[in-house]
Amino acid sequence: MQSATPGNDPSAPSAADAPDESGPAGTTDPAVPRRRLVMLVVTAVVVLAIDIGTKVLVVATMTDGQRIPLIGDVVSLYLIRNSGAAFSLATGMTWVLTLVAIAVVVGIVRFARQLGSRGWALALGLVLGGALGNLADRFFRGPGPLEGHVVDFVSVGWWPVFNAADSAICCGGALLVFLALWGIEIDGHRSGRDPEASR
């Protein structure tokens, strides 16, 4: 009778059979997508809270068109109401931009179930939080639902006036471009890499 020891038990899983969440596949552990989803949600909530908080503070303490210099004439607080997209683009198309933002939010929510990459979770969280922050203005600020003007208040040199949500969207978008160029897919795999060839 052979004694059952950790070293010779044929039923014991070997190291090669153990799931590796840090490898190229990155999603063999079923808990990984849940953790990435939590990361996305936490990132989005933090961005949304910062965006709403700064807008409420600025609107409560400044008047429309008021400018408060922070670093000479280069950086200042400058309160404006923006009917267009980020950085005052596409003004006059408020309701269209609102629908586009809603579509972006729905798309992120749908793709979130495939998350296996920390980078994608962070990037999508930044974009989601920024989109929700500006959507809150579209729905709850004047002149009315779907046509509300977004509060912008950060002025840096010649750059168009923006807010925290715009910054998050741009940072998230830039990170998504980097991940795509680096070949990292949403599930954590590296595109163009044959898992069998790397063994």
Rank of each mutant, 00 (worst) to 15 (best):
F178M: 02
W95S: 15
R141Q: 12
A174F: 10
F111K: 06
Q114F: 15
V104P: 08
G92F: 02
L176E: 08
G173E: 03
D187N: 12
V161Q: 03
W182V: 01
D187G: 14
A121W: 08
G133E: 14
R138E: 03
G119W: 00
R141E: 09
L132Y: 02
D166Y: 10
I108P: 06
L181S: 00
F111N: 12
G172T: 03
F178A: 12
A123P: 04
R118I: 10
C171K: 02
P160Y: 03
R118N: 13
A165E: 07
T91Y: 00
V154G: 10
F111T: 14
D137P: 03
W158G: 02
W182D: 10
P143S: 04
W120N: 03
F140I: 03
G144Q: 09
A101V: 10
I186Y: 03
V127C: 04
L132N: 05
G125N: 13
A103G: 15
D152I: 09
G157D: 05
P145G: 11
G125Y: 13
L132A: 13
W158I: 11
S155L: 09
L128W: 14
L146V: 14
R118F: 11
G188H: 12
L135A: 15
A103T: 12
Q114K: 11
R141H: 09
A168W: 03
G172W: 00
G133V: 12
G188A: 06
L124V: 12
A180V: 08
D166G: 04
W159C: 03
I108E: 15
P145E: 08
V105T: 12
L124P: 13
T94D: 00
A131R: 15
D166P: 01
P145V: 13
I186P: 14
C170I: 12
R141K: 15
L175D: 01
V150R: 00
A90I: 04
A123Y: 06
D152P: 03
L124G: 08
A165S: 12
G129Y: 14
P143N: 14
V150W: 01
L122W: 02
L126S: 01
L132I: 12
G157K: 13
L99F: 10
A90R: 10
N134L: 08
V104R: 13
F178D: 00
R113L: 08
W95Q: 11
V106A: 15
A174V: 12
I108Y: 06
F178I: 09
E185V: 14
G148W: 00
I186M: 11
F140R: 11
G92V: 01
V156D: 08
L179C: 07
M93G: 06
G157Y: 06
L122Y: 09
A123L: 09
T98K: 04
G173H: 03
A101I: 01
